Each structure stands twice: as structure tokens, then as C-alpha cells.
Amino acid sequence: MALFDLPPDQLRDYRSRSEEPEDFETFWADTLAETRRHDLDARFEPVTTPLTTLDVFDVTFAGFGGHPVKGWLVLPAGTSRPLPVVVEYLGYGGGRGLPHTHLLWGSAGFAHFVMDTRGQGGGWGGGDTPDPVGSASAYPGFLTRGIEDPHDFYYRRVFTDAVRAVEAARSHPLVDATRTAAVGTSQGGGITLAVGGLVPDLAAVAPDVPFLCDFPRAITLSDRTPYREVANYLKTYRGRTAQVARTLSYFDGVHFASRGRAPALFSAALEDRTCPPSTVFGAYNAYAGRDRTIEVYDFNDHEGGGPFQEAVRLSWLPARLTS
């Protein structure tokens, strides 16, 4: 697959044309205040596993609307003092899966909190968190659920769950709340950017090949799902383009990036047709924090850097969490 997006030198200067709604701040402040009326009710149940170097807890906490959201908390075995925590968000269609698939951060000496994504898990991993909220007609997938109105949009619930996941992780006595990082790849990267814009005191964020960024460009450039779901929806529901664009503007990673202050490590892949590199750079170039860097993988598709990017994270993140 050849390069298809902007030339690399132009990516560094690219600016998204996504328009931020005037009530963006109010919308999210009201959404989080509404959810915080529900008790967080974070519960951590020890799980017996064959893992001898890690301790695992089955987590339940109250997310959007007070709905129960699942997760895993993984700690180095025998931890007796509070540790910095890495809160991880998952890719599109996947669920939290089984504990032994989450070994990296606990093995590196951190607390690791993995949030299940409501309604997902049928594609890979397996999920344990239903989404009890229905929606009007939608194209198969998640990206057009409730897309007629930002208050009903699926990702309003997911982003709110993600903020509550940080709060749940920080509530555990073996977590040092002052040293919290958010990480994720693809959909997880987009959720990470949202959390970075909504939680002001994170120590670091690391969004890899993030989805949910620069919607005006993404939905007209990418011919793959999930972005293609929006085009297919509009192919059926003609005349709703402006309405859909307005909804998506409340969830665009570009606008969350403009509020992010924590040190940030991005990644982009120049042959990525799922999350085109210009959409990633649209968020990266809007990022407000001064300590930001981006790893670029010249000949990779949506797999991005894969284990190479994991190695970059493992060398980059400790300095932000252990100082």
C-alpha cells in the first residue's frame, strides 16, 4: 500500500478544520456533573489466576448514568505501597478479555487499570459491560449510535465512563492518584485524548494511532470502518450531514487535544487508512501541552508501531510517572 495522505512535511503544519461548538465546555461539564451524582461505588474483587508475578482484581464501578462498568486492576504481586497507575482504553470492538492478556504494565512495576468498553467485546477479547441505552436507527457498528443528537451519542457514555475509570483507579489504596497516565491505541487512543482534555491533572497521556480525531477530514478520506459507518449512514439518511457534523464536533479529539496539558506521546502510521495520519496530526498539532512528541511509522498501516511502539512507551512513560 502506497502513501495516500498528505506528504510528511505537510503533516507537521496541518491544521484541522473541525469547528468547536460554542457550548463544548458546558456540554462536558454538565455531562460529568450529571454522572457524578451517582456514587462511584468502585469495587475490587481479588481474582485467583495462575499468574505468580501479578495480583489481579475484578473491578466494577459506576459510569455514565450510574451504569456498572467492568475492568481489571493488575498489580505487581505482593504490592504494599501505592504505585503510579496506567489507565488503559481498548480498541474498537474489543472487550477487557482475560487477565493474562494484560501483563505489560504490571510487569514493568506499575498498577494497570483496564477499562471494559460498554457494549463492545464481540469483535475480540470478550466484554462484560452491556450498554443499557438504546438509540434510533444506526449503521452497524458503534459510531452512528445516537448520532442525531450529542446528548444521545454513544461516545458521550464511553468518554464519561473513561473519566470515571480514572476516578475508580485512583480510589484504590495501592494506587498513587498523583501519578496517573492514560494510554490507548486506535479507539483507545481517541478515548485517551478525551480523558486528557477532561481530567486536568494527569501525569501523562499516550494516544497511539488515535481514532475519533478530525472528523470532517476522517469521514471523507478513510474508506474503512469505523469512519465509513458515518458515510454509509448518510448515504441512507440524506440531508442529515450538518446535524451529524454538529454531533461529532462534541467528540472530536482535536478539541480535547487543545485542552490537554499533560506530557503526551502520540504515534501515527503513514499508510494508515483506518485512522489517516493527517487526522492524527490534526490532534497532535492542536495539542496544548508543551511536552509532546510523536513517533511516525513510515511504512505501516493501522498496526502502527505495534511492539516497537510499546517499547517506546516503556522507555518514555516511567520518567513521567516515577519522578
Rank of each mutant, 00 (worst) to 15 (best):
L83T: 08
D214P: 13
P318A: 02
L75Q: 04
A206I: 03
L40Q: 04
F61Q: 04
E167T: 03
V59I: 12
A288Q: 07
A108K: 08
R261V: 01
T48N: 06
T144Y: 13
F61A: 05
D201A: 04
G184F: 08
V85P: 09
F211M: 14
R164V: 06
V133Q: 05
A218Y: 14
P21M: 09
T247M: 02
A181H: 04
V312A: 10
A177D: 12
D223K: 15
F64G: 01
S135A: 11
D152S: 13
H151N: 15
W316D: 00
P210V: 12
G65K: 12
A29T: 12
A165I: 08
K70Q: 10
W72K: 01
G94F: 12
G189R: 10
F266V: 03
H151R: 15
L32F: 04
N300L: 07
T322V: 12
G122V: 00
R320C: 00
D58Q: 10
A77D: 04
F153D: 05
P50E: 03
G134Y: 00
C213A: 15
G71Q: 08
R228I: 06
A231G: 15
E19M: 08
T35P: 01
F4Q: 13
F61V: 04
G304Y: 06
F153V: 11
I294G: 08
V133M: 05
V175E: 05
R179E: 11
V205H: 02
T180R: 09
T144P: 09
S137P: 01
R246F: 05
V158M: 11
R156Y: 10
F61H: 10
A182R: 02
D13P: 00
S107N: 11
N232P: 06
R43Y: 01
A264R: 01
E271I: 10
L6V: 08
R118V: 02
V183H: 07
D55I: 10
T236W: 14
S186K: 14
F211D: 14
T129F: 07
L212W: 15
L221V: 15
R145A: 05
G93H: 08
I147W: 08
V59L: 01
T247W: 07
F211V: 14
Y155R: 07
F113P: 02
L270H: 08
V86N: 09
L54Y: 05
F4R: 14
G126C: 12
Q243F: 04
A162P: 02
D272N: 13
T236P: 01
Y250T: 03
